[in-house]
Computed example of a mutant assay.
Amino acid sequence: MTGDRQQGTNTRAITSRRRVLAAAALAPMLTAAGPAAARAVPHGMPGPKHGRRVRPVPTGLADWAGVARALGRTGNMLRGTTYHTGFPRRDLHVVSDGVVVTAGLALGTHVAFVRYADGSTMLMGDVVVTEDELQWVTDAWQAHGIEQTALHKHLLAQTPDIWWTHVHAHGHDAVALARGLRAGFDRTGTPPALPPGPPTPVDLDIAGMEAELGAKGSVEDGIYKNVFVRRETIADGHLILPAGLGSTSAFNFQPLGGGRAALSGDCAMLAHEVQNVLKALRRGGIKLVELHNHHLAEDPRLFFTHFWAVGDGVELARAVRPAVDATNVVPSG
């Protein structure tokens, strides 16, 4: 997945070599998977010259019953094509910048399954693990053909040490993919699912924040969230991603009382947008945490920056709006 603007023959050659290296890096993970691994399908390479791209097909909850059983909890449908399941790490007591971070703010594992017109299934997710869990989880996933495409931080210095790792798999047996994913989860302290609780009051001026952000958000697990999706069609190798999957900019606000909030978020950017976004965030007093990729073979190439701030909710929303305006996104609603 390359979104870099190519300028001249030398740049095209460099990009081509990068694609070849990325494909080579995936090969050992697929061939080394043991008998229990899901049967993997090669990603293919991005761009029309590498074959026809495959579109996702609509599915319903009934289509994912086997996946739900393998994961040990039910999920929900997003936009008619993406089966999503959350695994909030409510077992963790994490403090960053003097703030006790809730699961809804930055400690939520999220995985998604998508069915394609060729009958295959893609798995993509973002998983929260402690530093002590990380290597054990990695070993379990590698034994089951589950790939890792990113490993990084979402928060500034925190206790205990937490890592966020992105996972990816593609095959014709969705349940086998789910079992492979579950094998890694079973090596963590991820708690069982809880029944939905009563709505939690959110002590924030949501109307004022939405006026500053120019979009409606939502409240989930006591967190106010505002999400934007890229306008472009994004592909992962030869697979077209459903709108919003793996290409969102998310702004999560945890109430701290008196209209104040802790903000944890990330922006999805093309290469030419990166510097404008970073500058806009810093002009607003927002602390930068990470700049990285989440994928290995997306087209166009995407970059993500994670950021953090504490302050008045409306002022924080005003501070991040220029970063939103510097990217080609629309509100997810």
Rank of each mutant, 00 (worst) to 15 (best):
G258N: 06
A250E: 09
R230F: 04
T305G: 00
K287V: 15
H238W: 02
L256R: 11
F228H: 06
E290T: 15
Y224A: 06
A309R: 11
L302T: 02
R301P: 00
G285W: 11
G284L: 10
L296G: 02
V227T: 15
F303L: 14
D221T: 15
S264D: 10
K225P: 01
G265L: 01
S218W: 04
V277G: 00
N226Q: 09
D205Y: 02
K279Y: 12
H295F: 15
E220G: 01
Q275C: 10
D203E: 08
Q254P: 04
A262E: 04
V289F: 03
W308D: 02
W308T: 13
M269S: 01
A243I: 00
H238Y: 06
A297H: 11
F228G: 06
L278M: 05
G246R: 03
F251E: 12
K225D: 06
A271F: 10
T305P: 00
L291K: 06
A215R: 01
E220M: 05
L213K: 03
E273Y: 10
A215Y: 01
I223Y: 07
N226C: 14
D236C: 13
E210Q: 15
L270W: 14
G257Q: 07
T233Q: 15
L278R: 01
A250N: 12
T248N: 01
L245E: 00
G208M: 13
P300S: 06
L245S: 01
A271V: 04
G257R: 08
A243Y: 08
D312A: 11
D266C: 12
R283S: 12
G208H: 11
R283P: 05
Q275R: 13
L281W: 00
V274I: 15
A262T: 14
D203V: 14
G214E: 03
F307S: 03
G285E: 09
L213P: 02
H306M: 04
F303M: 10
A271P: 03
G311Y: 08
S264Y: 07
D203Q: 08
I206Y: 07
Y224C: 05
L256M: 12
V314E: 04
A271I: 02
T233A: 14
G246D: 05
L302F: 11
F304G: 01
G311D: 09
V289R: 07
L239G: 04
L302C: 06
